[in-house]
Design a protein around this nucleic acid. Structure first.
Length: 463
RNA sequence: GUCCCUAUCGUCUAGAGGCCUAGGACAAUACCCUUUCACGGUAUGAACCGGGGUUCGAAUCCCCGUGGGGACGCCA
């Protein structure tokens, strides 16, 4: 049997971090077993589904490079199929029409709650041998309900959580088709998973409670029941539940904030799943190692600090040319045009060891392309008379220097010898003069990358 | 309220009855490196929710509490 998994988001918003992890796990499981990964858009909620959200989800998956093998399938395009199955079930007696009005339903649910019971449909229109059904009111379009077994229990061995069992009498006869004839979620999922021959349903654990109903429908249809793996949710950095209002951001926000997709993938893989003590691993390694048995059953809190650490690691490992492209793109967003000089790849090489995000990298590169006038405070602090004298001395030597790091380093040392100052006493004012800030990578390397023309020009501006 | 799930350092986790005086990573602290700031290196502190069982032996199995989460829609 070949593995078939699916990711089935509803297009009511962007792809957030929890959905991304579920997608990653489903994708990885299929890849691990040489199976098929299917993308299915659950858009039966006409009110809230939008084409923009579909696109946002596809964009997010593309950024993370989670390619699907089949689909995207849209549930709205499969209506004929759901209706066909509903007719079959009606004919077979595993589903029935119910004429109870929404108002009446609300009413009984309220009463049940008041009595401390679990609110549920009371089975009024459920056909039973020897039971007299009420007369259908005229002019009322009925809903279709699933005739759930009332005896026994439904159980499955969840691949993450272990055995889970529900008593059938906890489950009511849920609606599979609305009064307008459109099928509902719990029903569409079942038909789709069945038709698409899904072998492993990997999804958020907010679906645990839907699973017994879905299994019962599957059984009523004579379909094979897939394996289930319910992955727990991701909490925000503060331990609070993620919601649209609170911390649940689009994965694309991570792109915007300067994270590399491979860092996000590695972080997400490690959030709720483990392979011994392994922390840093490639996507390929992850696929080789991935299993459902090592997914943690409890909720995990997102930790931006650790993501930052991983991101820093992947930036260090990234190709200079790629980082140059990121610098270009990110500075362009600030209306800064990055030309060929200084070479952005060289600037990237200078800073890739020191930054945690691509935005920090772009910020670091900024003064290489836009000459900054040192702030008054910095000038007052660093441009003391002896420092200025040393910079003048240095400027003279630089004008004639061979523009190569080792040579520039020697020029610096000669300047120290000539002025009797220590390295920091010259290097720090020089940094302020060149980049407008007292910290930078090794100053000889900065000189080399910045180039003679810019260096002399910027020195002249402050001398 | 009812049902379901869950519980190891601040955080992510290792741990499948003896290998655990509980390991790794992020973060924290200290020191080292250093041409500043970082990076990097080394070291240190830091946890098995509580109570009962089972067992020669429990972080690991069972029960009860407690905390956290989810579900109870003609939403998905």
């Amino acid at each position: 049997m070949t593995v078939r998994t699916r990711f089935a988001p509803s297009p009511t918003g962007y792809l957030h971090i929890g959905g991304a992890r579920t997608a990653l796990f489903s994708w990885a499981y299929a890849r691990r077993h040489g199976g098929t990964f299917i993308l299915r858009i659950e858009d039966t909620d006409i009110e809230r589904s939008t084409p923009e959200a579909v696109q946002a989800i596809i964009d997010g998956m593309q950024w993370l490079d989670l390619a699907h093998d089949e689909g995207p399938f849209y549930q709205m395009q499969r209506m004929y199929r759901y209706k066909e199955v509903i007719e079959q079930m009606l004919a077979a007696g595993s589903a029935y029409h119910c004429y109870m009005s929404p108002e009446e339903l609300d009413h009984i649910r309220e009463a049940q709650r008041a009595r401390g019971e679990k609110p549920r449909y009371d089975g009024r229109w459920r056909p039973e041998s020897g039971k007299a059904l009420p007369t259908p009111p005229s002019g009322v379009q009925p809903v279709v309900r699933f005739k759930n077994p009332q005896q026994g229990a439904v159980a499955w061995d969840d691949l993450v959580k272990g055995r889970i069992e529900f008593a059938n009498d906890e489950l009511d006869d849920f609606i599979i088709a609305r009064a307008d004839g459109t099928p509902t979620y719990n029903f569409c999922v079942v038909v789709d998973d069945w038709d698409m021959r899904i072998t492993h349903v990997i999804r958020g654990d907010d679906h645990v409670n839907n699973t017994p109903r879905q299994i019962n429908v599957l059984k009523a249809l004579g379909a094979e029941v897939p394996e289930y793996a319910h992955v727990s949710m991701i909490l925000g950095d503060d331990g609070q539940k993620l919601s649209k209002r609170h911390g649940a951001v689009s994965v694309m926000q991570y792109d915007e904030d300067g994270y590399l997709p491979e860092a996000v993938i590695n972080y997400l893989a490690r959030l709720g799943w483990s392979h011994g003590d392994e922390e840093v691993f490639s996507r390929e390694q992850f696929v080789q190692w991935f299993d459902l048995a090592h997914i943690t059953p409890s909720a995990a809190q997102f930790n931006t600090e650790k993501l930052n650490w991983l991101n820093a690691h992947y930036i260090k490992a990234a190709d200079d040319g790629r980082l140059a492209g990121e610098i270009r793109k990110r500075l362009a967003a600030q209306d800064v045009t990055v030309g060929d000089h200084p070479d952005p790849a060289q600037v990237a090489a200078l800073y890739k060891e020191r930054v945690a995000t691509l935005n920090e990298l772009a910020d670091a590169a900024h003064p290489f392309y836009v000459a900054t006038h040192p702030a008054a405070e910095l000038r007052a602090q660093h441009f003391t008379e002896p420092a200025l004298a040393a910079l003048r001395e240095l400027r003279g030597r630089l004008a004639a220097a061979e523009w190569q790091r080792a040579a520039l380093s020697q020029v610096l040392k000669d300047t120290l010898a000539a002025t009797g100052l220590k390295m920091p006493q010259v290097a720090i004012p020089l940094r302020v003069a060149l980049l407008g800030q007292p910290q930078s990578p090794a100053i000889d390397a900065v000189l080399e990358v910045l180039g003679r023309e810019d260096v002399l020009g910027r020195l002249d501006a402050v001398l």
